[in-house]
Structure formats: structure tokens, C-alpha cells
Measured scan of single mutants.
Amino acid sequence: MGFKLLSKLLVYLTASIMAIASPLAFSVDSSGEYPTVSEIPVGEVRLYQIADGVWSHIATQSFDGAVYPSNGLIVRDGDELLLIDTAWGAKNTAALLAEIEKQIGLPVTRAVSTHFHDDRVGGVDVLRAAGVATYASPSTRRLAEVEGNEIPTHSLEGLSSSGDAVRFGPVELFYPGAAHSTDNLIVYVPSASVLYGGCAIYELSRTSAGNVADADLAEWPTSIERIQQHYPEAQFVIPGHGLPGGLDLLKHTTNVVKAHTNRSVVE
């Protein structure tokens, strides 16, 4: 069995187990497998329904001669939608809004960016022009300005110390501490036991640490421990890039980060 097929099978099995364990909360999309990078042309966006009122959005972007996937989250909030992270750029984010209108038909009224990198804030200006209120932590807003990236308009308070959590509509926002970046936030959907790890969490097929220019490698494993301790009931975990899975993604990420750190020390 090929690795790609095995990865998709694991996603399907995880979703099936969740649907059985929580039949009222989960209505997993039966329309197909989780979209992969090879299936999404740059400039297009796919939506994948995880649970009743919960979707991931998947886009792709060219970077350094390669094409990478990027995940975000959409959560229903009454007759409105909360968006977590842009679709990595203005063109993708405009396509995301169009796809949401086509498939869901509810307005996106608020959006949260989970850290300051372009795959999370690139497209904020498109959201703002569409009347979406954009939010991020003060740290993310400051770092985005320093980096020359787009800056969300509103500040999220109460997320300055490791372990801080605040309720934001249908989700809980959690600051686990520094990891992929010093400002990275985690998003949890309690009604569906869905954990969105953003770039602080890796997919299972990833074996290298990737972009760690703004990471705190020493603190990252401790931050992941905080996530595990705060959300032990999480059933569906979405990484910032690639295929979702279960809580095993947290341990896998820790292993990859520690291996990278150990290699760096040896070198």
C-alpha cells in the first residue's frame, strides 16, 4: 500500500471513529477524501466538511520552486461564519470567499490569524475590503508590521502568557507558548472536538522541520505538551499544512522538532 493511500485511509478511519463516538456532533463529509496538494491548482481553494458547521479550507501556493498546501478553518456561528487564517495570499483568499459563498452561503463576518507569517495573514486586506472584521493577538499584529505583512485590524486580548485561553464565538483560542513562531495560536472547536494546530503542528508525513527561522526550538516541545494537557479530548487535529489526523500529530511534531534540534547540535 502506497504512503499517500495509507495517509488518506488514516484520515478516513479517524473521521469514521469520530462519527461513531459522537453521532450528534459529527456529520463528516462523505463526498470524498481530504484534498491534497496535487489536486488543488494554485489560485483555487477546496472546502472539506469535518463536522456539522465545521470545515477546513485548503489552498496551495508556490514557494521556492515548489507547491505547498495550506489549511485553515471555518466555523459556523449562528447565521454567520468565523474564518481562521487566510488562504495564503490575496488571490487565494478572494477564491476562498467565493467558494464559501458557493458552498455554504453564509457571510464571513470575523477572521482570526493564528500567527504573523504570510500563509496566515496574506489576504487580510481582501477580507477587510469584503467587510470582514480581522483579528490577531497584539504580538501577531506587531510582528506582521515588522515583517511588512498585512496586519489584522483588531487585537485579541488575554493571550499574552503561555497557557492563556479565551473564548471567541464558537471557538476557544489558546496560546501554548512559542513553537513554530513566538505568537502562534491554537484554535479548538469544543462542539466538535476539532483542534486546529496551525503551523505549530505537523502532518504525519512530514519528517523535516522546514521553516524554523522564527521558531523557538527549545520551547516548542513544552508548548505541545500544554496543548495535549489542555485538549486531551480532541479527536480531529488539523495541521497548518497537509493531512489531518488525531492527537498523534502532536507527538510526531515533537519528535521531528527534537530530531532537528539534535542534528543542529551535532553539526
Rank of each mutant, 00 (worst) to 15 (best):
T36V: 09
L47K: 02
D125A: 12
L13Y: 15
V37R: 08
E267F: 14
E157N: 15
Y68I: 07
Q61S: 07
L127C: 00
G246P: 05
P41R: 07
E147Y: 14
L81N: 01
A234G: 11
G177H: 02
R263P: 05
G2N: 15
A179C: 04
E267N: 04
V121R: 03
T253A: 02
S16V: 14
H230R: 08
T93Q: 04
G2V: 09
A19G: 09
G242F: 02
G169L: 03
E99Y: 13
P176C: 01
Q49K: 06
S205N: 15
L185Q: 02
S208M: 08
N149M: 14
P221F: 11
R120N: 14
P176K: 02
W220R: 01
S137N: 15
P35T: 06
V132E: 01
T222P: 11
V171F: 14
E99G: 14
R167A: 05
N211P: 07
L195V: 08
S70N: 07
G240C: 00
Y175R: 02
W55S: 01
P244K: 11
L9H: 13
A209E: 09
P239N: 01
N255S: 06
P221D: 14
T140A: 03
A111C: 13
S155N: 13
N255A: 14
A51K: 05
F236G: 11
W55D: 00
P190F: 11
F26D: 10
G53Q: 07
A95F: 12
V121E: 00
R110A: 14
F168A: 04
R120E: 07
L82F: 10
V28R: 09
V194L: 08
H115P: 00
V257S: 05
P69Y: 08
S160M: 12
G245M: 03
R206E: 15
A90H: 14
G197K: 02
I100K: 01
I20R: 12
T153R: 12
L247M: 14
D183E: 06
H115T: 00
H230C: 11
T86F: 00
T86Q: 02
Y175V: 10
P138H: 04
V124N: 09
P239T: 13
T14V: 11
Y135R: 00
V166H: 14
H230M: 06
H180G: 00
V121L: 04
G65T: 04
V132H: 01
A98G: 14
T153P: 05
K102T: 13
D216Q: 06
G148C: 05
T36Y: 10
S31Y: 15
L97Q: 04
G210C: 04
V54Y: 00
Y202W: 11
N92K: 13
A136M: 07
V171E: 02
E44T: 05
A136F: 03
R226A: 08
Q103Y: 15
A25G: 07
R46V: 09
V212T: 13
A59R: 03
V187P: 02
A19I: 15
V212C: 04
G2S: 07
N262M: 13
A218V: 11
P107L: 11
S181D: 01
L249T: 15
D119F: 00
A111Y: 13
G198L: 02
L10K: 14
A179R: 02
T36A: 07
I58W: 06
S161R: 14
E225V: 11
V37C: 09
S30V: 09
F63C: 06
P107S: 13
H154E: 14
V28W: 07
T14E: 10
R142Y: 10
A111I: 12
S264F: 06
E219I: 04
S264W: 15
T86A: 15
A165G: 12
P107N: 13
P23M: 06
L47C: 03
N149V: 11
G53H: 06
S160A: 14
N71T: 09
S161W: 13
L250H: 01
A130L: 08
V266W: 09
T60I: 08
V108F: 03
S208E: 13
L243F: 11
F63G: 09
T261L: 08
S139G: 09
G198Q: 03
G210L: 11
L143D: 04
V189E: 09
V189L: 10
A215P: 14
V189R: 00
F26V: 11
D248V: 10
F3L: 05
L13D: 03
G246M: 07
A25C: 06
A192L: 07
W55I: 04
G131Q: 14
G65K: 07
A59Q: 15
S193I: 05
E33K: 07
A94W: 14
A21C: 09
G148K: 15
A21Y: 13
L159G: 02
L9D: 07
T254F: 14
S181M: 01
W88V: 00
R76A: 09
I58C: 07
H115Q: 00
L195E: 00
V257E: 01
S70A: 07
L243H: 12
I151S: 11
G158D: 15
D85C: 00
G240Q: 01
I50T: 07
T153K: 07
E33P: 04
E225Y: 04
S7I: 15
L13N: 15
L106Y: 15
G131V: 04
S137L: 08
K91R: 14
L96R: 01
